[in-house]
Every structure is written in C-alpha cells, then in structure tokens.
Amino acid sequence: MNNIIIIDTGCANFFSLKKSIQSLKYSVKISSNISEILSAKKIFLPGVGAINTAIKYLNKRNLIPIIKNITVPILGICLGMQLFFGDSQENGFYSALNIIPESIVKIKNKKFSLPHMGWNKIFFEKKNILFKNINTETRFYFLHSYCALLNKYTIAVTKYGHFFSAAVQKENFFGVQFHPEKSGKDGQKLIKNFLEL
C-alpha cells in the first residue's frame, strides 16, 4: 500500500516509526504537506514532549483543521493520542484538537516516579480490531507523565498508580499512549493491524 503518511508534528522520533512500517513492507513518507496528507490512505500522528509545542507547530502549518476533518484511519501515538483530546493540564492549561471531548491530566502516583517509563501491561475485555492477535495483559513500552482517564472511547487500559487509557478509538481516530514502534513483535502486530484496516 502506498499513500501512508506520518504527520510531521515537529516533536517525535519519526524514523523509528518509519522503519517499523517499512519492515512490514509498506511505503511511508514523513510529511506536513496538506495535499499529501489529504491523499493518504492511512495516517500516523506521533509525538513526544509538550502538547502546547505540538499544537503551535501544527497551527503554524495550518494542519489543525486538516487533522480534525480526516476521514481515513489515523493512529495517534503517545503525545499524538493526547492531541486528539479537548485540553491538557500539562504546564498550565492548553487546548488540543477536541476530537475526544475529555482532558489530559497528570498521572496521580505517589509511590512511583514520573515519567512512567518502561514496559507495562495493557488490559482489554472486548478486542478491538487494533488488538487482533494480541492478548490482554501484553506488555507495551510507555514514556509519559500525563494521561487520559478512562472514558467512553477507551478500548484498553493500563495501571501506573491508577488506571488510565492505554488506547482509545472514536470512529476513524485511534490512539495509543504507548509506543508500538518500540514494543517489539506485539507492537509490530498492532501497527500491521492498523495498516490492514
């Protein structure tokens, strides 16, 4: 399949994701070009760091209305997933894309240090197509200090001090808090599942 785009958010390790996709024998391009994004069949929205930095970058390139109106499958990864939400309490209060009208909050954890970094189990009761051939309690790699609490769009959860969303879906918008491109064979399965939607 051609026309796979990784949206350049200005704040991600795009090349590890690109390599993961290419290892599955797909062609992929990193781009912030509107016409290329609009012609894509599958889209990835990765990100790390501060949500306000990513929003400023996307706004400068006039990508916010483009992303909000995407009709093909799009997968937000880590900060990319958080961008789908209404707002974030990170370093103040910042508006995001408001595709999912919920807030991003700091992980409430008195026993463990932040960021939440490393391998952690995810749990789901009803399998979503994103988790085809992946078992509940599979471990994925996380690196974050802020999270989405459980909401009606949650399709998988994890626990670090408290339960929060490990993955979400609203229509064609899929999001994972973890990094599938850094999560070994099960991460590759998830990327493959998304590409085969």
Rank of each mutant, 00 (worst) to 15 (best):
41 K>W: 01
43 I>F: 03
44 F>I: 01
44 F>C: 01
47 G>D: 04
51 I>P: 10
51 I>W: 02
53 T>I: 11
55 I>G: 02
56 K>Q: 11
56 K>W: 01
57 Y>A: 02
59 N>M: 08
60 K>T: 07
61 R>Y: 14
62 N>K: 15
64 I>R: 12
65 P>T: 03
66 I>C: 07
68 K>A: 06
68 K>D: 08
69 N>R: 11
69 N>Q: 10
70 I>M: 03
71 T>V: 03
72 V>G: 02
73 P>F: 05
74 I>G: 00
80 G>H: 02
81 M>R: 01
81 M>D: 00
83 L>H: 09
84 F>A: 00
84 F>C: 02
86 G>I: 00
86 G>S: 15
86 G>F: 03
87 D>L: 07
88 S>Q: 06
88 S>Y: 05
89 Q>F: 12
90 E>K: 12
90 E>T: 09
92 G>L: 04
94 Y>F: 14
94 Y>C: 12
95 S>H: 12
96 A>T: 15
97 L>D: 07
98 N>S: 13
100 I>K: 05
100 I>R: 06
101 P>Q: 04
101 P>C: 00
104 I>C: 04
105 V>I: 14
105 V>W: 00
108 K>D: 14
109 N>F: 03
110 K>Q: 14
111 K>C: 08
111 K>H: 13
111 K>L: 13
112 F>Q: 14
112 F>K: 15
114 L>F: 10
115 P>A: 05
117 M>H: 09
117 M>E: 07
117 M>D: 02
119 W>K: 09
121 K>W: 08
121 K>L: 06
122 I>M: 09
125 E>D: 14
126 K>T: 11
126 K>R: 11
127 K>P: 10
127 K>S: 12
128 N>T: 02
130 L>I: 05
132 K>T: 13
134 I>L: 03
135 N>I: 05
136 T>I: 05
138 T>N: 09
139 R>G: 02
141 Y>T: 05
142 F>R: 10
144 H>Y: 09
145 S>E: 08
145 S>N: 09
149 L>C: 09
151 N>K: 12
151 N>V: 02
152 K>Q: 15
152 K>G: 06
153 Y>M: 06
154 T>I: 10
154 T>D: 08
154 T>S: 14
155 I>C: 06
156 A>T: 07
157 V>N: 13
158 T>Y: 08
158 T>F: 08
160 Y>W: 05
160 Y>L: 08
161 G>N: 03
161 G>I: 04
161 G>E: 02
162 H>C: 13
163 F>T: 12
164 F>H: 11
165 S>E: 12
167 A>C: 08
167 A>K: 05
168 V>K: 10
168 V>L: 05
170 K>H: 12
